[in-house]
């Protein structure tokens, strides 16, 4: 039988010393205590209990884990949590204003830009950051940006339509 209680034996090669720091997510401070090797994505999901940020590959290709840090769209699976201490982190949970959805969230619903919804938080954060940084982005350039994330359900056409519609709406609203 394989069961045994953990006895706290030290093998010496695992870095398990925890660090205490604060993550600011969606304007709220979360004091956390995690090992230095813990990724930002895991920490946001498990310590901050914000599970909207998804993990599709954990090696930086799919973009499901995309969040915004200090005005930049980043892949939270490729960062350690401790690297984000003191920075302004935004996740999908912070997009809506109370019950009022962000124009991009509305556009994804209106244009059927999601099926299973697993890639959606990543696409939303990528697109939100892009439209905030470059409100006048052209169609071709937009495709280049969106090509950095993967979706396995939609075939992308409706995602592109949704982002373009939101771009046009946000621009008109200025």
């Amino acid at each position: 039988m394989g069961e045994r209680a953990a006895e706290g034996l030290v093998t010496g090669f695992v870095m398990t010393e925890k660090l205490a720091f604060t993550l600011n997510v969606n304007g709220r401070d979360f004091p956390v205590r995690v090992e230095p090797r813990r990724t930002l994505a895991d920490t946001i999901r498990e310590e901050c209990k914000l599970t909207g940020t998804h993990l599709g590959c954990e090696h930086g290709v799919c973009g499901a884990c995309t969040i915004i840090i200090d005005g930049e769209a980043v892949r939270s699976c490729l960062m350690f949590a401790v690297q984000a201490a003191g920075k302004r982190i935004r996740t999908v949970e912070g997009l809506a204003n109370g019950n009022e959805l962000h124009p991009l969230q509305r556009a994804f619903i209106a244009h059927h830009g999601l099926q299973c919804g697993f890639c959606t938080p990543g696409f939303l954060m990528l697109a939100v950051n892009t439209l905030e940084q470059q409100p006048d982005i052209g169609d071709e350039e937009l495709l280049d940006v969106l090509a950095s994330n993967l979706c396995r359900c939609t075939g992308y056409g409706n995602i592109v339509k949704a982002v373009k519609a939101a771009r046009d709406e946000m621009r008109a609203g200025k």
């Binding site: 959805l101 059927h112 939303l124």
Partner: peptide, 19 residues
């Protein structure tokens, strides 16, 4: 019509196995 499924999924309130 718009999908009933979408509101939780676009707001990060979905509940996948990892959640």
């Amino acid at each position: 019509v718009e999908r009933l499924e979408d509101p939780p999924l676009v707001t990060g309130r979905g509940r996948f196995a990892g959640d």
